[in-house]
């Protein structure tokens, strides 16, 4: 009777006031059978990591449009690691230049999605990645 579902935190760090994109992604992930915790705007890295911990999510997805991603994304990762949550699949999206994407992907982020990414492909990426991870975990799922 095991029923494991992918749990995702969709969070918006920083000050920008646009969460349409984040909400769209949240509902697409839901439609792909995931349990999505959506937190609303203006979350600090500290809050995001704390929510990820309490919710024991498998995935944290960050969305940012203000351009502050290079300041904020690594800090979210730091806060996660500090809480022994470094294992979560960390992804991000928004208006992020190619170079920054490469840098972040070398810095603990699994995947950065640029503007105009097909939302279904985000869901498919997460599903494929979690499938691999759970298979590798074996009984320790």
């Amino acid at each position: 009777m095991t029923d494991r579902r992918i749990r995702v935190l969709v969070a918006k760090p920083g000050l920008d006031g646009h969460d349409r994109g984040a909400k769209t992604v949240a509902s697409v992930l839901r439609d792909h059978g995931m349990e999505v915790i959506y937190t609303g705007l203006h979350k600090t890295p500290d809050m995001i990591a704390e929510i990820a911990l309490q919710e024991d999510v498998d995935v944290v997805g960050l969305s940012i449009l203000s351009g502050a991603h290079m300041a904020l994304f690594p800090r979210v990762r730091e806060e996660l690691v500090k809480r022994d949550m470094g294992h979560v699949l960390l992804v991000g999206g928004g208006i992020i230049p190619e170079d920054d994407r490469t840098n972040l992907e070398q810095d603990g982020f699994a995947k950065l999605f640029g503007p105009g990414t097909n939302t279904d492909s985000i869901a498919e990426y997460i599903q494929a990645e979690m499938k691999t991870r759970w298979a590798a975990e074996g009984v320790d799922a």
């Binding site: 349990e35 999505v36 609303g40």
Partner: peptide, 25 residues
């Protein structure tokens, strides 16, 4: 689909980093 959007904790934001609280959706 079995999926869910869990949004109740948006209204409990000021308890998020309170060490005496723990919220689970």
């Amino acid at each position: 689909t079995g999926g869910a959007l869990l949004g109740d904790r948006i209204r409990m934001e000021d308890r998020t980093t309170d060490p005496g609280c723990f919220i689970r959706s």
